[in-house]
Every structure is written in C-alpha cells, then in structure tokens.
Amino acid sequence: MKQLLKYSVAAIALMGFSSMAQAEGKLSIYHWFEYIPQELLDKFAQEYDVEVTMDTYDSNEAMLAALKAGKMGSYDVAVPGDYMVEIMAGEGLLDTFEPNELSNFSNIQPQWLDVSFDPGRKSSIPYQWGSTSFSVNRDRFKGDINTTSILFDPPAELSGKINVLDTQGELLTMASIHMGIPQCSSDREQLKELNKLVQDAKTHWASFGSDTAKDVLVSGDAHVGMIWSGFSAKARNEGANIEYAYPKEGYIVWMDNVVLLKDAPNRENALKFMNFLLEPENAAAVTNYAQYTAGVAGTEPFLDEAVKNSPESNPPSGPVGHFVQACPQDVQVLYDAIWTNLKK
C-alpha cells in the first residue's frame, strides 16, 4: 500500500499566492498499515507545505527485513515497536536528535520518556501503546476465554477457526507466556517444548494473518483471533460480537514509536513530523482512529468517549502484561529457526 500526498499548490493558494510552485520539501514514512488517519497526513502536508509519501508493512520483522534489504536511505521515519527500536539501534539503523530539536518534547508523558529500549528518547518518540491478546466470537463460544489455552489447546468447537498474527515476536512471546517459560530462553529443552507447542497448536489454526486480523472476525471466518487491542475495538464497532481476552497467564503490552532513521533524506521534515505528532490534538487524532492510547500528555479533551471507555483500553487488575524482549543474537537465531519451521 502506498499513499502520495501533494499539497504545494493547495497550500500556496490558501496563503493567497497566485503563482504555482513545488512543495518546500518531502517526507517519506514507513508505517504500519491502517494506523494513521489520512486527514492527519493531509493536515501535516498542508501546514508545512510538504509532499508526503507513505509505504506500509504488517509486522516489525517485515519492516526490519525491508530496511536491511536496501530500503535504508529511502525513508525518513518508521514506526517500530519497543523491542524493535532496541534491535534497530543495535544494528545502527537509527539517527539521534537532541530534545531541543523538538519544541513539543516536553509533551511526552514521564513514564514513556526514560524507556529501556531508548533511554532518554534519543532516537524515538512515543506514538501509541496498547496490548496484544485475542478476541473470541461470543455467538460461537460461551465458555471462559481468559486463558491462553484458547489459542494453544482450544476446545473442539473453536479448532480450525483461529487466526493468529503473522508476527514472530508476539506469537512466540504469547506461546512462552502460555508455557510459563522466560522469553529469550537459551535452554534447549524449553525451546524444544516451545517448538512442539506451536507445531501442535498449528493444527488448530486456520490462518496466519495480521492485515486481515480484524476482517476475519467481522466476517465470521474466524471465531478466535489473536489481535491487537485497537483492532479488536474496531471489529466490535463494525458489528462483530466479540470479547477481548485478558488471559490469567498474561498478555502482551507494547509501545509503538516514531524513529528517526539513519540516512534520512529529509531529516528536517522528519523532525517536523515527529514534533507534529507530539501535539496533543494530533496524538488524539491517531488514538481516535486507531483506538489505542497515546504517550502524549494533554490528549484527553480531544478523545472520543467510546475510545476512552472501551474494554480494550481498560484492562482489569490481575492479569500481567509483558513487553516483548529483544533477544541476544545467538539466542534470536534459535527463535528464528522455530519460526521458520512453524511457517513451512
């Protein structure tokens, strides 16, 4: 998916100029699919007289692979999850900036400022945060859903009607949570059991799908869907009688971030865009569209009531949320092998 926005003529007309001119600059974004409202991109393009292009991806791993395969230098910013920011920094894919280069830097909420994956926010700003779990069609299943067994050892009536996210980090982390083993384990016996778990569970899964995770629940093609919290809320709003689960074993929490990429061809406009997203009204526009939660102070007056009060945005006390960890490279290759085997 690619979006191209050209607003130089419109912006100049709004300023009262009669002559035509090119946009003052460009901005190239690498972004998750269905995650930012078109109107917000339009607003930025018009305010700064910038030509904006955007390509999309459906997993952190797909984004990383594309950048390493030759896309570095093509994009100014990307939107990786927390653990992927750490991986990208370690591989030298990120540029740095000083806080004084962003006039809205102080709008970052304190809990999202000195984060482990980017201490002090040298290369990234918070975008949205949420959780990853699964949703169940309540017309099809009336029993207890707050257990990860729904994904990995489901009741017979759900077998063959399960969609899981096509994202290595999240799926294998959810499997580790189910087993009660550490993430990034290097214990060979634990890894053998992890491999067996997902291979056995695969027989119950109908599909791997990230970009279709919402649609298959809405259509009824899937009765269970591993899903991001905002996608679950959207599916409910589109008429799916689903409930988002908070399994007793635990679930995944995450923070997506806008990063400044190394060799960004339009660094100044990248920083303008990052600063633009730290405006409370603009951060709230993303939240209202994507139905997650911003890491920016002052958004509440701009939020829709339905978003503020959705069950996906208000987890109960008890179940524990876990961030996906970035594994050491010698351990990561073992998880890569499990994933490759699973996707055969």
Rank of each mutant, 00 (worst) to 15 (best):
P182G: 13
W205A: 06
W228D: 00
M226Y: 04
K214S: 10
G239V: 02
K234A: 03
A201H: 04
P265H: 10
P182V: 12
L165F: 05
K161E: 12
L171I: 03
D200T: 07
V164A: 02
G180N: 14
S210P: 06
E157L: 05
H178A: 13
A235H: 03
M179I: 14
E279G: 10
F231H: 06
S232I: 01
G209Y: 05
V253E: 09
A264H: 10
M226W: 03
T212M: 14
T148N: 14
S159F: 10
I227R: 06
K272C: 13
G250I: 08
G230C: 05
I150Q: 01
A264L: 14
A213P: 06
D144H: 11
D263P: 03
V218E: 02
G239T: 01
N257H: 04
E170Y: 10
N266A: 11
H204F: 15
K196M: 09
V258H: 02
D263S: 07
M226E: 13
L191R: 13
G143Q: 06
K272A: 15
F231A: 08
L271Y: 09
A233P: 00
P247R: 02
E238A: 06
R267K: 14
D144M: 11
V253A: 07
S186G: 14
L191D: 14
I162A: 09
S176W: 07
L165S: 05
N237R: 05
K161C: 06
P155I: 05
T203P: 06
I177W: 13
P155W: 12
S207M: 12
S176D: 00
T212G: 10
K272G: 14
D144N: 13
Q199P: 00
E238D: 03
V259A: 06
D256Q: 11
T167Y: 08
E157A: 08
P154Q: 05
S219P: 05
N237V: 01
G143Y: 07
A233C: 01
L172Q: 01
K142R: 12
L261R: 00
V259I: 06
S176A: 15
A270E: 13
Q190T: 12
E170M: 04
W254Q: 08
A240V: 00
P280G: 01
K262F: 01
G169L: 03
T147E: 01
I177L: 15
P155Y: 09
N195C: 10
G239L: 08
G220W: 02
L165Y: 11
